[in-house]
């Protein structure tokens, strides 16, 4: 019966209803089906909402990013990149993926992030590289480039962080196995994460190189442009 809430989420997201509404309804309905009285349910709902305020920490970065954007940060990112002749969309994002994954593996999770790094720096840099190489590209293509910048941030973070011993995920698993009387070693757990971490970097980099190839084909490589001019 409590799976109705899960079903609501899946259907709600699939039909593209507003997620806030879907999530709230699912929480309330699941709670009621699970036998919680309404007042207690709303109390728990409010309590959990307050407990998870840290999820919204991005608000505190907004004044910085807003002020810098108002003074031309995104344009400056694009200009900085256009100075590197070898920069391409794929290479910039691969470079960021590598930094993000390595930093996370060293426990430096706070290097990077969507509001403070991707929006003001990486996305404009990748778009700037596309502009320097191909001239103006259509809006859908720009959106796709920005989405790739955001994806690299996620992939780098997820598959880097579990290689660091003192990260929440590793400690959670260690605690869980301890409770069940199974001996584990955080260092070995972190080490066994390395094959997957390398694999994901490899695969995603190939996809980014393919993205570069596709862009070259579609919008013409600089060499071709020169020939056209002649």
């Amino acid at each position: 019966m409590v799976l109705i809430g899960v079903g609501l989420i899946v259907i709600g997201f699939a039909l593209r209803f507003n997620p806030l509404v879907v999530v709230t309804l699912s929480a309330l309905i699941t709670g009621l089906i699970g036998g919680m009285p309404l007042v207690k349910l709303i109390t728990q709902f409010g309590e959990a909402f307050t407990m998870n305020r840290y999820m919204s920490i991005l608000i505190i970065t907004l004044p910085v990013i807003g002020l810098l954007e108002r003074n031309g940060l995104q344009k400056q990112s694009a200009i900085l990149v256009s100075k590197f002749k070898k920069a391409t969309v794929g290479r910039i994002i691969i470079f960021y993926l590598a930094i993000r994954e390595l930093a996370a593996a060293l426990g430096l999770n706070s290097i990077g992030g969507h509001p403070q790094t991707v929006r003001p720096l990486i996305a404009p840099m990748a778009e700037g590289a596309a502009k320097a190489k191909y001239g103006d590209v259509p809006e859908e293509e720009k959106e796709n480039i920005r989405a790739h910048a955001a994806a690299a941030d996620n992939i780098g973070l997820f598959f880097g962080e579990d290689i660091f011993v003192a990260v929440g995920g590793i400690l959670l698993m260690k605690g869980f196995f301890d409770q069940n009387g199974i001996h584990t070693d955080p260092i070995l757990m972190a080490l066994w994460g390395i094959p997957t971490a390398l694999f994901v970097f490899f695969v995603h980099s190939i996809r980014l190189i393919l993205l570069d190839r596709r862009l070259d084909k579609k919008y013409g490589s600089p060499v071709k442009k020169g020939e056209d001019a002649q």
Binding site: G5, V6, A27, G31, I33, M51
Partner: peptide, 8 residues
């Protein structure tokens, strides 16, 4: 949190 409490 609600899911966990409801035993999903």
């Amino acid at each position: 949190v609600i899911f966990t409490q409801a035993g999903v």
